[in-house]
Amino acid sequence: MSTPYDIDEVLPAGTIETLPAGTNVLITGPAMVGKRELAFRLLATGHEKGEGVLCVTTSASASSMLDEFERRVPTLDRDRVAIVDCSGSDSQQAIREIATERVSSPGDLTGISIGTAKLLQRFSKQNVSDVRHGLVSISTLIQYLDLNTVFKFLHIYTSRIEDTGGLGVFTLEDVSHDAKTVNTITSEFDCVIELREGADGREVRVKGLPGASRSWRAFD
């Protein structure tokens, strides 16, 4: 619980290699820049060391999430992947294969919290204590709920991840929201990873962590 989470080789060399237990990370950037893919990489990195992944998906189905994890980790242990699916568009397939809790709508935050609590308890019974938590994406929550409700939920949920010694990885499509909304959401996170399309390809910048360089770097 107190050992840092390894994210080696996910970001360009010299950026960050580990994140302390209890850290909450927000990935921001425009559409199609690869926020979701980066989130998956951050979530999947510790899998071979016995960590668990608990991901809340608001628009992709549980089965497509499972496919993405299996592409990234060919030796995926399906007992250590759990999904709260509020996309409302899933077949029963993934639900038979991995632990899935379905929630009728991304606006049902109580249902989402119950689902994550059940799945986390399941991990703890399996003695999986290091868990990476994903929420993809905050932008969908903002479409369904008032900003103040989303903000309050993020405060509670990031506190939960902090108090259980997990690692939180969230995504936000920043260009869809005004600067005030982005600033408000961002303030709840320990660390923000920004992605953008630069003149020579994709670039990344990390903000909020002491010691991390704040300049833009090329990122393939």
Binding site: L109, I112, S113, F153, S159, T164
Partner: peptide
């Protein structure tokens, strides 16, 4: 917030 009932209760 690591207590399940407190966490879900706060969201409620």
């Amino acid at each position: 917030m690591s207590t399940d009932t407190d966490f879900v209760g706060a969201v409620r």
